[in-house]
Amino acid sequence: MVAVSPWLVLAGLGIFHGLNPAMGWLFAVALGLHRKSRRAVVLSVIPIAIGHMVSIGVVALAAVLLGLIVDQRVLEVTAGTVLLGWAIHYAAYGHRHRVRVGMTTGMMGLGLWSFLMATAHGAGLMLVPVVIPLCLSASPAKDLTAAGSLPIALAAISMHMAAMLAVILAIAISVYEWLGLSFLRRGWINFDLVWIAALAITGIVLIV
């Protein structure tokens, strides 16, 4: 169970990102409706995936590489402080800095938007507390090594992305084919508040 739980956390974060309209499925549906094409909905997942993966990959891999030369406890406190600071910043100013991309943008614009949105939400930062312990557990000496850490980090990112994209695709097709966007008028979970709370709690746990 101990070995499986980090992977379940990565999948859970992927599911959470996939449920959030701001992470991609809303744009996928809008693009499909604009082009009157289910194929456009499916294809839009590709640039969404690339943009998100580059954003979280840069942060997660940078954390692993930093962990090769920095003590684990120092890295945990640093990551916790950054997460807590990011939560405070996003709560205070996140709503003022929305990414300006039209709902009928092309695939290139969608990829750029996905990268910027994932970066603005601190998506990669949330993977760091999970990726580092996974990399440590893969080493018999419980030390970060480049040979052992990078494959584990890449596998962690892949797990996260697979869960996220499965949810995005399922929701986007369901909304496009059957539900329609009208259900959003009846209410939707404020994922920004949930995300801010998750960032803050994770940051505090890492620091303490």
Rank of each mutant, 00 (worst) to 15 (best):
G12T: 01
T202Q: 03
L10T: 01
L150G: 00
V130D: 02
G187T: 05
I196S: 06
P6L: 05
M1G: 12
P6H: 00
P129Q: 10
V42P: 05
I204C: 12
V208G: 14
A146L: 11
G102H: 09
I46W: 08
A163C: 04
A170Q: 08
S37A: 12
V9M: 09
S158L: 11
A155M: 13
S37F: 03
A156P: 01
L19G: 10
M103I: 13
V128I: 15
N20A: 12
N190K: 07
R185W: 10
A138C: 07
V29G: 06
G14D: 12
H97F: 15
I207F: 10
I171L: 09
E177C: 14
G122H: 02
H17P: 07
G67E: 00
V9S: 13
L116K: 03
I157W: 04
A123E: 11
P140W: 03
V29D: 09
M164Q: 10
A79Q: 02
I157K: 01
F16N: 08
S44F: 12
G85H: 11
A63I: 05
A62M: 02
V41R: 01
G111W: 00
W86I: 11
A162P: 02
I15G: 10
I207N: 04
H17C: 13
V194P: 07
K36Q: 14
H89F: 15
L68H: 00
M117H: 01
F115D: 05
Y93N: 08
Q72W: 01
A60K: 01
G180R: 02
G109Q: 07
C135P: 01
S137G: 10
G85V: 06
G67K: 00
I201K: 02
L26M: 13
E177M: 13
T105F: 13
L43D: 07
L8W: 06
G57V: 06
P6G: 05
P140T: 03
A40K: 03
A123R: 05
L125G: 09
S114T: 03
V29I: 15
I168E: 15
A49K: 00
L110T: 03
D71Q: 12
H34C: 07
N20M: 09
A163P: 02
V208E: 10
L75E: 06
S174K: 05
V54Q: 03
